[in-house]
Nucleic acid binder design. Structure first.
Lengths: 335, 335
DNA sequence: CCACGGCACTGAACCGTATCAGTTCGCCGG
DNA sequence: CCGGCGAACTGATACGGTTCAGTGCCGTGG
């Protein structure tokens, strides 16, 4: 333990022969000091290795220079889905010296507690909200708290909060349209958690797009296990689907295994499409046709909006580039 | 913007008719106030929804109540490997009201900058270090800074920093021993980044265990792409290996695809073993034999040690349960 | 020559909490 | 009845910045 006392602006002031106030002005680029003094102060600050104390700054009304992200999913899902890490990396790319606080919680109640605590303690300036439900309790709670927040998801569930979203309806229409154009007439969808709003939106878009043909939707918890089971059930029916659209990549891989296990060659007898294009899609045989989104860009956009919001910018809803279909080897015309 | 001023201990003091000092004692469970007063103060605090200001606390010498984790790998790798999210979830399970700051950086230089800034700003009380190299510059730098740190990795690279590690040599010996016992005499290893210390340790253990047989080690960047390429090269040699041991699961899946592509049935003609057992290992066919570790427990242990260290506890090196082999369908005796 | 304006800077208050040195009690023992 | 002691509490100060109301000084225009 070398208790090297960190230098403060008082130290700088002493060495520069000016007052603390002058040093503060100099360091923050504010008017009120001559250029000569400013340069001298900056030189001394650099020389003695001065660093602003975040606590002191925050205490006198400045921003906490941190934003928060709370994730409400079991840890085992997080590891499997690249989505969150990619989103996080995108968020961070925009953050600069601002920091990211991360927390995982078991349920929305705990999540709200975290927001309350963070905001009450002045630990974050704003938060990014993911995995929204219909009538999500977090939205009104955050509105009431007055904590700046950006919803990653459709504006329809964001209330008056700022939202950043991509058009999944179009992406779903494009994907389904592609399968139909190939000749598929019996299409199934292995979806994620039915409580999530984006699942509802995709469900609806899928049902609309397949209105004229035979179609199924099965809900799962995103695990490979449930994806496999759903696939097995779908493929066991007498009039089995000729194409299946999954809500993530791990379930698609599981579905692929089930098809192989049941002796159904992919894509000849069964076409598969993954939603979200992770490296995993390209390492399996056949490589998976996938709906690709630029998730880091998504996160970056959300972060940018949140920072703007914190600075007093306008709320609103902002659309990013829609996902696009990347055809690979797991889809073809039905037998 | 409802600028609801947050209540402070001064507000409580006014309503309770005591001084700020007394309120502080009461709220912190310190002696110096009667039980009656303490109860009254606590009641008022709860009633008006008082929350301590972290900034103020930190300023008067308390802990920042946050620890940091900096990850120095490209974002695309992070998404693929469950390791980090699982580690993070384990860390958080021990954190309680302490927060986790997460940052990804491109290189070690930037990583050191982050540590310096965090520590200088008083933003974190300690950090967890991952992905250590031989002669890692971060170790002496952190020692010099005096920032409490826990190394997730072998004590030999941790210097005087506290380390939390598992015995990979034994795990490697067990795994290799299993393959040898099955009858394999030509074994290859598709390893990760050669600069990482745990790669070096596994390399060495692998070479030792295979000293009497034909063996190969190929280094990659952990991506499926390089895993596939390495596998292709290994399987193209005239005396190809009958078993391959990979350093992560995505490369193993890629290797499996390559084997299928080349018409080599797994496990009959080629046995495969993955290091780190993610759900992915169980959704492919055949399910992958894997070296399993309890990564969340690992993270939890590291967090616990770090918190203890921050509280003035002793440094040291602490071993957690070693990884164990989980045989599944991708290994059998060679043809 | 003086009034005024603006620049450069000072001194002090303030943010919310922790903590320490006192102060005021009441109580007990001698 | 008084001295001493400990419990309960007060008031002040520190923490490290930001910010605001002055203050002294210089230049300039009338």
């Amino acid at each position: 333990m070398a208790p090297i006392k960190r230098p403060t602006i008082a130290d700088i002031a002493r060495r520069a022969g000016v007052s603390k106030g002058a040093v503060s002005y100099a360091l923050n680029g504010q008017p009120g000091v001559s250029e000569a003094t400013r340069a001298r102060v900056l030189a001394i600050a650099a020389e003695i290795g001065w660093q602003p104390s975040l606590a002191a700054r925050t205490l006198s009304g400045a921003r906490a220079q941190a934003i928060g992200l709370v994730v409400c999913r079991p840890a085992r899902f997080l590891g499997v889905e690249p989505f969150f890490m990619e989103l996080i990396s995108g968020i961070e790319s925009e953050l600069g010296s601002c920091a990211l606080m991360l927390q995982t919680v078991p349920d929305h109640h705990a999540e709200l507690e975290v927001y309350r605590r963070w905001w009450g303690e002045g630990r974050v300036d704003g938060v990014i909200l993911v995995d929204l439900h219909a009538d999500d309790v977090r939205v009104p709670a955050l509105q009431e708290l007055g904590l700046p927040a950006v919803v990653v998801g459709h504006p329809s569930v964001a209330g008056s909060l700022t939202s950043v979203w991509s058009d999944e309806v179009t992406a779903m229409r494009e994907t389904t349209g592609y399968l139909i154009a190939l000749g598929h007439r019996r299409i199934a969808r292995v979806a994620g958690l039915p409580s999530l709003m984006h699942t509802v939106i995709r469900d609806r878009a899928f049902a609309d797009a397949c209105a004229d043909l035979e179609h199924w939707t099965v809900h799962t918890d995103y695990t490979g296990e449930q994806g496999a089971r759903a696939t097995r059930r779908l493929l066991s029916s007498s009039a089995r689907p000729t194409a299946i659209l999954y809500d993530n990549d791990i379930m698609t891989v599981a579905g692929l295994s089930v098809a192989q296990e049941m002796g159904l060659p992919v894509p000849e007898e069964l076409s598969l499409v993954a939603w979200d294009d992770s490296p995993l899609c390209q390492v399996v045989r056949p490589p998976l046709t996938a709906v690709s989104r630029d998730i880091p860009a998504f996160g970056a956009h959300a972060a940018r909006r949140l920072l703007a919001l914190v600075e007093g910018g306008p709320p609103g809803s902002f659309e990013v580039e829609a996902a696009r279909l990347t055809p690979r080897g797991s889809t073809t015309r039905p037998a």
